[in-house]
Amino acid sequence: MLLIPCPYCGEREESEFHQGGEAHIERPKDPNKMTDEEWADYLFFRDNRKGVYLERWVHRHGCRRWFNVARDTATNQIVAVYKMGSKPPKSITSRVTMK
């Protein structure tokens, strides 16, 4: 069970949280102008990276706030935690190719 550092509450057990998939997938501003391929890419296609992965978590049974986590999916080590709307720390971006 992971120990997740909620930026609002501190370290809490994984069972209090829900993982919300890959981070930094922005909803298109005008979906109607997109091709089916572009829409599908937004809807379904994911990085699913082995290694440092940027993901969203929500502290479901706590403050109910969403935030971002950079976690190595091979080792489960949490590398960084940062708030929604912020960019990942520079030390992380060098380890991940952003899409």
């Binding site: 994984e14 069972s15 949280f17 829900h18």
Partner: peptide, 13 residues
């Protein structure tokens, strides 16, 4: 398990 992963180790809960 709830979180993505490649670790082949899951959570006890």
């Amino acid at each position: 398990d709830g979180a993505h992963g490649y670790s082949q180790r899951g959570s006890l809960h």
